[in-house]
């Protein structure tokens, strides 16, 4: 589904923040990206979404080169941070806006929202608040659910577990697990939390200083292996 070759990102001062010679993510795979701060996780996702310019190499998303064509946009959804939310909209307006962009009918969006009512925990829909006035955790919930609108084939979530309360984390794991089980959806998740990532992903890649240092299929030993790797 996603194919990366010779991808590097260097900044003007010559520091290489990402260097991935080769990486293939199969359709339907659930892909976990772990690493310390500055390992290049967000940089990698930003390159997948063509939000920053690659210094060399290319990313193919379903055979579309992301920095030369925009044909990947209709089937790709992402939530990286709050800059993916429109602060002056209510949650409902935001969902319908995204729905409109993805060619969804209002009733389709409503059905999706109804399905995830539990995830919202009653604090988001009809809350009489604009998104800018929601708490960080609630903003995150809105952003995550919005990526599911319009049945995207690629879903990219940066640090989805951060800032969420324990109950919501468990609900989110369930949602991601469901997506992972769906063979039509390729999901990419980054996290600092090794346990959560191992739980929801079939494959885990560890980044360190912009390079891939581990690439493993999840098995019962994976968590221990990763913990040993990141041990101090």
């Amino acid at each position: 589904m996603i194919s990366v070759s010779n991808l590097t990102k260097k900044y003007a001062n010559g520091i290489t923040v990402l260097n991935i010679p080769n990486l293939d993510i199969a359709p339907g795979e659930s892909f976990g990206l772990v690493g310390n701060n500055g390992a290049g996780k967000t940089t990698f996702f930003s390159l997948l979404l063509d939000l920053i310019e690659p210094s060399s190499g290319k990313v193919l998303n379903k055979n579309v080169q992301v920095n030369t064509s925009e044909a990947w946009k209709p089937f790709t959804a992402a939530f990286l941070d709050e800059s993916f939310l429109i602060g002056y909209l209510t949650a409902e307006e935001y969902f319908y806006f995204i729905g409109d962009l993805r060619g969804q009918k209002k009733s389709d969006v409503d059905a999706l929202l109804a399905k995830h009512e539990e995830f919202f925990n009653g604090e988001i829909l009809n809350s009489k608040k604009y998104l800018r006035d929601l708490s960080k955790g609630n903003m995150k919930k809105v952003g995550i659910i919005a990526t599911l609108i319009g049945n995207p084939e690629v879903v990219i979530l940066d640090e989805p577990f951060a800032n969420l309360d324990p109950t919501t984390v468990n609900r989110l794991k369930k949602i991601i697990r469901e997506l992972a089980d769906d063979p039509r959806v390729t999901i990419l998740v980054s996290s600092h939390d090794l346990a959560h990532t191992v739980e929801v992903c079939d494959r885990i890649v560890a980044l360190s200083k912009g390079e891939i240092v581990k690439d493993i299929q999840t098995s019962p030993e994976t968590l221990r292996e990763l913990e040993t790797f990141f041990a101090v």
Binding site: L49, D50, L51, K73, P74, T76, A78, L80, D81, S83, F84, L85, I86, G87, I98, L101, R102, G103
Partner: peptide, 12 residues
């Protein structure tokens, strides 16, 4: 500007 990354990664 506040949500430009969204606009740039959505189907727009």
């Amino acid at each position: 500007s506040a949500y430009y990354p969204l606009m740039m990664s959505q189907n727009i």
